[in-house]
Amino acid sequence: MPGTGEQDRTDRVLTVPNLLSVLRLAGVPLFLWLLLGPQADGWAIVVLAVGGATDWADGKLARLLNQYSRVGELLDPAVDRLYILAALLALGARGVVPWWAVAVLIGRDLVLGVCVVVLRRYGYGPFPVTYLGKAATFLLLYAFPLLLLGQADNAWGHVALPLGTAFAVWGVALYLWSGLLYLGRFVLAMRAGPVVAGAGTGRGTPR
């Protein structure tokens, strides 16, 4: 089931993990421009690598420093989605990724976005991040730079292209499967009904 509106998170905004997430967010338009403007694939891969490193670091630091927050809980997966969206649109425009795959993956996120809006109206929080969803994101974020490297007509390209294709196939499969699991949680929440505040607990419970 999705979490209720009240969770064991703080309302802090200025935390080290959140600052790292904002840094990653600032890299999204730069990443997109590098791919579509000068087509500087090497620098785009560097930006993506830095984003991946800070993605790992903000989760690690949140645990070490006990700096979990509601902002970070929403911002971290949102930035991941933006990197995936930017990479999909750029690689689709350059003919590296077929447009049907772009449409399927973006459609998955649009459907889940609508589900989140409905859940909030019912008093639930966003979908909790699952390991399957993180694994799918991990595979896709590794697939994109490998697919870019695979466009080069050299030894590196000949090795990177099949690896990138494999990462992409598994990433797309897990991305869609995790989307189905989230939809299952959405259906369970709708069957449970709206959340009502528990007496004296400050937490919501399904009605």
Rank of each mutant, 00 (worst) to 15 (best):
A135P: 01
L163T: 02
A136N: 09
T54F: 12
W99D: 08
V195N: 01
G164L: 07
A49P: 05
L188R: 15
P162L: 04
G204V: 08
G200H: 13
G157E: 03
A152P: 00
L112D: 08
D153Y: 03
L139K: 10
D55H: 06
V111M: 15
A90R: 02
V129A: 10
N66Q: 13
G5F: 13
S21Q: 00
G202N: 09
A135K: 11
R185E: 04
A136F: 06
P98K: 14
L48K: 11
P77N: 12
G125M: 08
G3V: 08
L139W: 06
L19R: 02
Q39E: 14
V114F: 09
A62W: 06
A197N: 01
M190L: 15
T137V: 10
G92W: 09
A86S: 07
G123T: 12
V22R: 05
R9S: 02
A136E: 09
R108Y: 07
A90L: 01
Y175S: 15
G150I: 12
N66H: 13
A160G: 01
V16D: 01
A135F: 12
V47L: 15
G164T: 07
Y124T: 04
F127H: 13
P145T: 05
S178A: 14
G72S: 06
V129K: 02
T15P: 01
N18K: 05
L146H: 13
L105K: 07
